[in-house]
Structure formats: C-alpha cells, structure tokens
C-alpha cells in the first residue's frame, strides 16, 4: 500500500512540477522539440540515401556478350560458369532477337541497318545480364567473367559505377556521422537545458533532503518529470515525421530525380521506426538529463 502510495505520489509530483515550473518546462520541451526535428530530418535523409545506394547496388548489372559463333551448349556452359561465381546474383539471358528489338526502339539509324540485313540473319550477340550482389566487388567479378570461355566482352559502365559507389559511400558516411553527432549534440543540449532548469530548483532539492527525503525519493520524481518533458518534446517531431514524410512521399510520387536512382523509402514501416527512435531519444535524454542534474545536488 505504501509502495503504491509512493509511486502514485512520484507521478503526481512530477506532473505538478511540470505545470508549476511551466516556463522552465517549456524551455526544456522546446529544446527537445527543435533538436529532435533536426534529428528526424537527418534520419530521413540518411536512410533515404542509404536506400538509394542499395537500390543502385541491387540494380547494377554486367552485360556479358558471348562469341557470335557460340553454340547452344557453349551458351549453357557460360551460364553454368556464371552462376558459380560468388558475387553473381541473378543471371538473365538476352537473345539476339531481344537485343534487336531493344536497339530498334532506341535508335532509328541502327534500326535501318538491322532491317538491311538479309532475312534470318542477326549479327548481334547472345548475352547474359548478370546482377552482382556486392557492388564494391564488381571489378573483381568482371575480370573473372571476362576469362570464361566463349565470353567475347563485357560491359558494366566501369567509370560510372565506381563514381556512384564513391559518391554514395561519402554521402552515407557523412549522414551516419551527422546523425551520430546530432544525437550527441541533442543529448548534450537537452541535458544542459534540464540542468539549468533543475539548478533553479536547487532549494527545492535542498528542502527535500532536509525534511528527510531519501536520495531515491528525490531522484525518482525528477526522473519521471524528465521523461514527461522528453515525451511532450517528442510529440511535434513525431507528428511532423509522420505527416510530413507521408506528404513528401505522395507529393514526389515516391521518387527523387529518376526512378532508377532516387527511389524514396516507403513510408511504412519507416516512419513508425523513426517515430519510435525519436520517442526513445526524447524519453531517455529527458530521464538521464534529469538524473544527472539532480545527482549533483545530492552529494553533500
């Protein structure tokens, strides 16, 4: 009964304190809100960049052209050799006819040239479109493929892919570093705001100690109060993430730049996880900030 009364009192006191010290609570809540919005933006940005990088990686392929005179057995043998390579994912055949159809659609002059060939003749090459599992290993994989018998040559836009890899790698590192730095700055900023708010309540803590409150009985209401402030402070960032990202996704139709490169992360469950992260940061930083600030005044 006494324990229940204690817990009840801790929550009641924490709630009362938030209201009684409204201006200080508001300062802490605003600080949490602003910093969490920045954290939310950086999470959205970094996760989307990561997603785009993955998208590019998973759609990067090597086109393997076979010798023009390769027999059906040899064509099948090349396929068997390809699937045995570790970094090779999906292997899709592309026949001479499919190539002819594709180039006809793309280029009028080539279309005319193909039409000039005698009926039944096709000088295009049979090929395989090979998807790689790890884009960073594409150069090694390409050199292995080149050595397979009956492979005439390969094409995978070496220059383009290596620059894309480098760009995404840099952006990814910057974003991850940014998110980590922001979370640390957020924690520091919030903890300091709470420290200031609690500093002004030094007398209150002093009196609590004086009248015989145990350290635990002093700390708990402040920790609960900190979590209340963290919770309230995370509401606006969560709402903004929830509705803002949904609106952005719908407005851009899920794509940035072009469909092959800039596909955005689907809103669900991404925004749910992001909201959860924001809530947890708000709660934890609020709680630990308060705990840390109060602890200082209990060392007498």
């Amino acid at each position: 009964m006494k324990l229940f009364r204690s817990i009840n009192r801790y929550f009641r006191d924490a709630g009362k304190s938030v209201v009684r010290n409204f201006s200080l609570s508001l300062a802490s809540i605003s600080c949490i809100t602003i910093t969490l919005i920045v954290v939310a933006l950086s999470i959205v940005l970094s996760y989307n960049v990561e997603h785009m990088a993955e998208h590019v990686s998973s759609n990067t392929s090597i086109v393997v052209f076979l010798d023009e005179d390769a027999t059906e057995n040899q064509i099948e043998q090349v396929k068997n050799n390809l699937v045995r390579i570790d970094n090779v994912g999906e292997v899709t055949p592309k026949t001479k006819e499919e190539w002819a159809k594709e180039v006809r659609e793309k280029d009028k002059i080539i279309s005319i040239a193909i039409d000039s060939w005698p009926a039944g003749e096709n000088h295009l090459m049979y090929s395989y479109v090979v998807k790689v599992k790890d884009i960073n290993e594409i150069d090694n994989t390409a050199s292995i493929i080149e050595k397979i018998d009956n492979v005439s040559y390969i094409n995978y836009g070496k220059e383009y892919i290596s620059s894309v890899i480098t760009i995404f790698d840099v952006i990814k590192k910057v974003c991850i570093g940014g998110v980590v730095a922001l979370i640390l700055v957020t924690a520091f900023l919030i903890a300091n705001t709470i420290k200031l708010a609690i500093f002004s309540r030094k007398t209150e803590i002093e009196i609590m100690r004086l009248v015989g409150a145990s350290n635990m009985a002093i700390k708990v209401p402040f920790i609960i109060e900190g979590s209340f402030i963290g919770f309230i402070g995370s509401i606006i960032p969560i709402v903004l993430t929830f509705y803002g990202y949904n609106a952005l996704y719908n407005f851009l139709d899920g794509k940035l730049f072009s469909s092959s490169l800039g596909e955005l992360v689907e809103p669900y469950p991404f925004i749910l996880y992001t909201s959860l992260i924001l809530l947890v940061i708000g709660l934890l930083v609020g709680m630990f900030g308060s705990y840390n600030a109060v602890k200082k005044y209990l060392k007498i």
């Binding site: 100690r209 004086l210 009248v211 015989g212 409150a213 145990s214 350290n215 209990l298 060392k299 007498i300």
Partner: peptide, 14 residues
C-alpha cells in the same frame, strides 16, 4: 554515508 543522511534528517527539524 551520504545516501543514509535521510535517516538522521527524519529525526530532526531544521
């Protein structure tokens, strides 16, 4: 000890 101060404070008034 610091964490036990409350035991004394409950017996006194200041």
């Amino acid at each position: 000890k610091n964490r036990k101060v409350y035991i004394l404070r409950r017996k006194i008034g200041v």
